[in-house]
Design a binder for these strands. Structure first.
Lengths: 193, 193
DNA sequence: CTGCGACGATGACATTTGTCAATAAAGAAT
DNA sequence: ATTCTTTATTGACAAATGTCATCGTCGCAG
């Protein structure tokens, strides 16, 4: 159950984990299941948990005045899902998070995060994760302001081919900030070139 | 000279700073001046320093095939400027960073960062900074994929009025991912509504 | 098995934004 | 003072993308 979490930790830190640490970590993460379409976080409420995905696929998105969803983040196995602003500041979230497939998570409250943050490996892992998240976010932003639709799609296929496999096209379109029709046309160009 | 840096640290952490810590921090940050338009980082080279801006204004941007600049990040007094990916991984950067005004910095190498990272206040400060950077980046991304040009501009004016004051319109346009002509027209709508 | 809803493709058209060119005003350099 | 550069605005037109409607397919719930 906790195997992929510990694998993730080991991959993202060099510090060893004692048996005691391991116990503390296990006690701090709670298992949770989500059915397809079930909400993990609803707009207006506080994000009380960070989730580590053991199995499944999730979406984080905003909904605008016209009811259109805008995908902020997609995540599958071995990714984290949380609205950090809401989680850290305990403020109502402007985003929704739900399960796109039936999903199994390990969830961590802020209190438990602080508790295990005394462990070097955990501290290091979150540090690493923060850095790479920021870098990825900045990269996506760069693409978003500098590349046309086709090239943004190509970058996504190159960097996150799993997303393109696991999520329907209209979700991918929203992630890229374009309409589903535009993505459909852009893909036509893409496969024929 | 180091006053605003220590103010920044105090604002972003609760841990106290001993006299020894203060000395170590002072020794780890080197003062550096940049003249207007002078490069702090050139595309293709490694970003060896993180800079804390004491005075002035800087831009981080990519340059595409057609020679157009795309502004990734703007920064003024009390902001940090760095290409994290290049800085942390010691890989050649895809971005340029330069001074838009004559600028005074305190710069920190990765080695010195690791040296002062033993200090709780520093660790906490960077942790805080990472979190808020990520949140800001995600917010900007959200706007970029979900709002039209006018509303993106309004958000910028609301959240970072200083940027709009300090940088010329074509730079703001590039930051928003639109052409300078579009921004000019959008501003007309904005001031007349 | 059947029907309904989700998904994706496509055409017609509207809207937004970009590009290019011309102009003018404000600064910076000499 | 004069020149040169940078910045901002505007018009005409082009290109990219969005919107709306329609259709066909597929998978799943009843």
């Amino acid at each position: 159950m906790y195997e992929s979490l510990f694998n993730y930790i080991k991959q993202h830190s060099k510090s060893p984990i004692s048996a005691d640490d391991e116990e503390l970590i296990k006690k701090s993460f709670l298992p949770r299941g989500l059915k397809k379409k079930e909400l993990f976080l609803e707009q207006g409420s506080i994000c009380n948990y960070t989730g580590f995905i053991l199995k499944g696929a999730m979406r984080q998105y905003s909904v605008d005045d016209s009811g259109t969803e805008h995908i902020i983040q997609l995540a599958i196995e071995n990714w984290w899902m949380v609205d950090r602003e809401s989680f850290l500041m305990k403020t109502p979230s402007v985003y929704n998070i739900d399960a796109w497939e039936n999903t199994e998570l390990l969830v961590l409250s802020l209190e438990n995060l602080e508790r295990i943050h005394t462990i070097d490996a955990i501290k290091e892992m979150f540090w690493q994760m923060n850095q790479s998240n920021f870098i990825a976010s900045q990269k996506r932003l760069n693409y978003s302001i500098s590349l046309p639709a086709l090239e943004r799609y190509e970058e996504l296929v190159k960097n996150y081919p799993d997303f393109v496999q696991r999520f329907p096209q209209h979700t991918i379109a929203s992630y890229l900030g374009i309409s589903k029709e535009t993505l459909s046309r852009v893909r036509n160009k893409y496969v024929h070139k």
